[in-house]
């Protein structure tokens, strides 16, 4: 697809243009972030800001470090052998990897939904109630579970079988359940790691519609390899690719409209027009 097509697509106004240059609160601030796994540099020199109540998409070819970066945001890489983060990564001004940072507290505020739906082998209710119970939010649990399931657009489908196993749900329902599970503890940020890649188009559409609702309340960072999806859901998009040393790095970061219609970097242009990746 050519840049012109994108331009038409975007300028036709299918996406509401965001209020021009509204002062946005910075949620994540990455400053020359790098990631090493042992002797391998997976990510190099990534600097950008992620803003509040925006959906920010991370796109790029396979192995470009977009998922690695996402998992740095809630410290899910910590348990990987040899993982080491360089540079500076802050969340609301707090150093995510500083001595003061508490991994468990970080994850409580920054929820995550994975590529493959991973409901616990428990009932639907127990899945959503699991984290609140764990964190001692036991008051009015029923209402909390209902609220989370409604927010994840799943309530009407499961309200009559909350006690049955979550494994009996379809893939798309399981993924929305995982979203409900994540928002049941009212996080500040939702990280979505290719949340629709294992789903059929209808389930994908429902997840994307959900993201539009959710970003009113949460800051969303979504990794996707589907550029159409980035265009459909994201306010801002970061394009990652490999640098000359085969390490992933940030090439370009801009509003989704601008990045897909008038990319500043030739590599972005090549990627979004299908000439590379």
């Amino acid at each position: 697809m050519s840049v012109e097509t994108y331009e038409r697509f975007v300028l036709n106004g299918r996406r509401p243009t965001t209020p021009a240059e509204v002062e946005r609160q910075v949620v994540f601030h990455a400053d020359r972030v790098s990631v090493d796994y042992g002797a391998n540099r997976a990510l190099d020199n990534v600097s950008f800001d992620i803003y509040r109540n925006y959906a920010t998409a991370l796109i790029g070819p396979s192995g470009c470090g977009k998922s690695t970066f996402l998992r740095c945001l809630n410290r899910m890489n910590d348990s990987i052998d040899g993982f080491k983060l360089g540079g500076n990564l802050t969340y609301h001004g707090h150093d995510l990897y500083g001595a003061q940072a508490n991994r468990v507290e970080v994850r409580r505020r920054i929820g995550m939904v994975f590529q493959k739906p991973n409901p616990f082998p428990k009932s639907i209710f127990a899945n959503v109630a699991w984290a609140p119970r764990n964190l001692g939010m036991k008051a009015d649990l029923d209402a909390r579970v209902e609220r989370a399931l409604r927010s994840a657009a799943l309530w009407d489908e499961v309200k009559d079988r909350l006690g049955s196993s979550a494994l009996g749900l379809s893939g798309g329902q399981q993924q929305r359940l995982c979203i409900a599970r994540a928002i049941a503890i009212e996080p500040d940020v939702l990280l979505l790691d290719e949340p629709a890649s294992a789903l059929d188009p209808i389930a994908t559409a429902s997840i994307e519609a959900l993201i539009h609702d959710l970003k009113l309340r949460y800051t969303i960072v979504i990794v996707t390899h589907n550029m159409q999806q980035a265009i459909r859901v994201a306010d801002r998009t970061a394009f990652f690719s490999l640098d000359q040393n085969r390490a992933g790095t940030l090439i370009e970061y801009d509003s989704t409209d601008k990045l897909f219609s008038r990319p500043a970097d030739q590599r972005t242009h090549d990627y979004i027009t299908g000439q590379f990746g």
Partner: peptide
């Protein structure tokens, strides 16, 4: 499955 363990840890457990 690692996904289940990750899922729990990502929920602040």
């Amino acid at each position: 499955p690692q996904e289940l363990r990750d899922g729990a840890e990502a929920l602040g457990a």
